[in-house]
């Protein structure tokens, strides 16, 4: 589905979801979702680091950082590498 800004705005009003981009993929999350809640919803094992709009959100601030419409998030962890 093509997401025009107009359509997105409509959806936002109707279900009070906001649109965020997580690791390059668009996601809808309830308004008021925190970084901690988002990470929890991903069912991940092990620690992650989060960048929001190109700024690191330190782990201590995950529970208090609320997502906003249009946020771009990177959720990363360590993998094997040289």
């Amino acid at each position: 589905m093509v997401q025009t800004p107009e359509r997105a705005a409509t959806v936002t009003r109707l279900v009070s979801d906001i649109r965020v981009t997580v690791n390059g993929e668009e996601k809808r999350v309830p308004e008021g979702t925190t970084v901690a809640a988002l990470v929890l919803s991903m069912n991940l094992r092990g620690p992650v680091a989060v960048e929001r709009n190109r700024e690191i959100v330190v782990r201590a601030e995950h529970p208090t950082t609320t997502l906003s419409e249009g946020d771009e998030l990177e959720v990363v962890s360590f993998v094997g590498g040289g």
Partner: peptide, 20 residues
């Protein structure tokens, strides 16, 4: 030991066990 930083794969759990 060196490690790489990558986006978490929402289906793949292997990475976490390496980190652990």
């Amino acid at each position: 030991v060196t490690v790489a930083v990558r986006r978490v794969d929402f289906k793949e759990r292997g990475a976490a066990s390496l980190f652990g």
